[in-house]
């Protein structure tokens, strides 16, 4: 199966840098401790709503683990580099759809990051913080479905950013813009319902809560399977957008190198 072969190749390539990536986890875990300290500092003696201090600590810690699956996918799925070298022409000419091709590779990358980055940080937090476990097996299964949806959405977003590199050399700014929007609107550090006025409204109608807020609330047992509906909608919408953009890419391709 092509999907498996591409994903596995990407996973195996990453395995070569295992030791370096495990060291990288120290930095990532430290970021998490900084965010946890912020909430511990704010939360002491204050009402933190349905979360409570312990719940909010778990929420933030879990979000830090999820980043490697839902936020740190490859910049433009590698498409900007392909445009730069001209290799995109070859990729578009292959007898496999470009979106399927790039997506399959990225799944391998995300699977690697889940195993060697998210999971070790998760275990560290379980031991040190402690981060709560899901309340039931059903809860855990719905959470995994939410994370898979979030990973797929993250792939779609990066594919769209990568596609833009065919028309501008500045697609990396879109990547950073997406990262900035993610920071505020995904609920990664502050739950979405605490965002005031139009910020909260914008966040709720955007794709970003599907990446962190929804999976984290499901994990904490605050929401059930019905919370996955927005994720399903965005998965369908972004899939159509990715297919449409690929049609545009095939219509006229300009490369920077070659």
């Amino acid at each position: 199966m092509l999907f498996y072969a591409l994903a596995r190749a990407s996973y195996s390539r990453n395995l070569q840098y295992r030791a370096s990536h495990l060291l990288h986890n120290i930095a990532s875990a430290l970021f998490g401790f900084i965010y946890l300290s912020i909430w511990t500092g704010i939360g002491e003696g204050r009402d933190l709503g349905v979360y409570g201090l312990a719940g909010l600590v778990s929420y933030v810690a879990l979000n830090q683990c999820l980043l490697w699956i839902t936020a740190f996918s490859s910049f433009g799925l590698g498409i900007p580099a392909l445009v730069r070298t001209g290799a995109i022409a070859t990729e578009l000419a292959r007898p496999v759809h470009l979106f399927y091709n790039m997506m399959s590779r990225e799944w391998g990358n995300l699977w690697y990051q889940a195993l060697y980055k998210s999971f070790p940080i998760y275990m560290l937090y379980v031991l040190l913080i402690p981060l709560r476990f899901p309340s039931s097996l059903t809860n855990a299964a719905v959470f995994i479905a939410a994370v898979l949806g979030a990973a797929y959405l993250s792939i779609c977003i990066q594919y769209l950013i990568g596609a833009v590199s065919l028309w501008t050399t500045e697609s990396h700014w879109l990547h950073w813009l997406n990262h900035a929007m993610f920071t505020l609107f995904s609920g990664f550090l502050i739950p979405v319902e605490w965002l005031p006025g139009w910020l909260g409204a914008f966040s709720r109608w955007s794709v970003y809560p599907c990446l962190q807020y929804i999976p984290a609330r499901i994990y904490l047992g605050m929401d059930g399977a019905s919370a996955l509906l927005p994720s399903l909608f965005w998965c369908a919408f972004l899939t159509v957008a990715c297919l449409a953009v690929t049609r545009l890419m095939r219509f006229r391709t300009e490369v920077q190198g070659g």
Binding site: R46, L177, T183, W194
Partner: peptide, 25 residues
Amino acid sequence: FIAAFIAFMEFALLAVILSRFGTIQ
């Protein structure tokens, strides 16, 4: 422009926390 926007969004995160809780320690 985008670099300033990114820095602003990062500050907005802090401002949202402060606007909800008033002070940080």
